[in-house]
Design a binder for these strands. Structure first.
Lengths: 138, 138
DNA sequence: CGCACCTGGTATCCATTGGATACCCAAAGG
DNA sequence: CCTTTGGGTATCCAATGGATACCAGGTGCG
């Protein structure tokens, strides 16, 4: 398969111990690895506002490359979290939307966003303090 | 600085538009990029159970390399999410623990874990269906 | 007609990241 | 001695991500 594929795992495993997120073969952990991802998170947040076309999405998410966007969308579609529909307009336009399953994930993610927004000053302060303690002795 | 440093961003920016997670310079997004990370998530979950030493942590999290573990711990410490304490035992032992700030993040992350554990069958089914539709035409 | 432009991608190449391995220190134990 | 132990760092190589170029194929424009 091509350059940076997402399909290396094939499909999720069948057997696991519930709660054992730390064994590499635990499907929960595989799933966590997939969704604990920069672009997936951002894409789902934007899609939460409503269906959107590929290029609009690309311009909305600052810094995402076309390659990562199409790869990540493909993987999210495979996971049943977003749906892809080709609208046969003049230049074919492709619209992406969150599925009901994806919407349940978004609720869980929202608490992380909220945390980041509210706790940011704390983190910035901690960083400043840390950097002051270790003066980067070069 | 050495090989795979985490400090490339220096420190978080000062000016932003609240809720604008999509501009690359938004501190919330920088923070999100940092915590929406495979190893950070796993480390915080383990640390949530109580303080733990470096090697114990390493053996607990299947598949993490020593390099990534020490790098990620350093970055989490800088962000004020975990604390590192050197106990002057015979071979020096280092204990890591979650800070109160880190504990607030863990609560937010827990909903993601719960989602992964409960919705995994849905995702596995979606993947199977997807793979059946696109027969990988080689 | 011939050319550029639109959308939604792929193919290619190179920089950065992550993983495996080896090594380091100092003290204890055989 | 020589190995083991804990907590790393240094080095090297494979995998990942990003930049850029290209493609299809229909449309408007000179």
């Amino acid at each position: 398969m091509q350059d940076g594929t997402f399909h290396t795992l094939g499909h999720l495993q069948e057997t696991w111990t519930r709660g054992d997120v730390f064994a590499a073969n635990c499907p929960t952990r595989q799933l966590l690895d997939r969704i604990a991802d920069k672009w997936s998170t951002l894409i789902l947040i934007v899609l939460g506002e409503g269906p959107i076309r590929f290029n609009a999405l690309k311009h909305r998410i600052d810094g995402v490359s076309q390659k990562m966007l199409s790869q990540t969308l493909k993987s999210l579609e495979r996971d049943g979290l977003v749906s892809r529909s080709v609208v046969a307009t003049v230049p074919v336009s492709v619209t992406y939307a969150v599925t009901p399953l994806g919407r349940t994930l978004m609720a869980a993610m929202q608490s992380m966003i909220d945390w980041a927004e509210t706790q940011m000053p704390q983190v910035a302060a901690a960083q400043t303090a840390y950097d002051a303690r270790s003066p980067d002795p070069h």
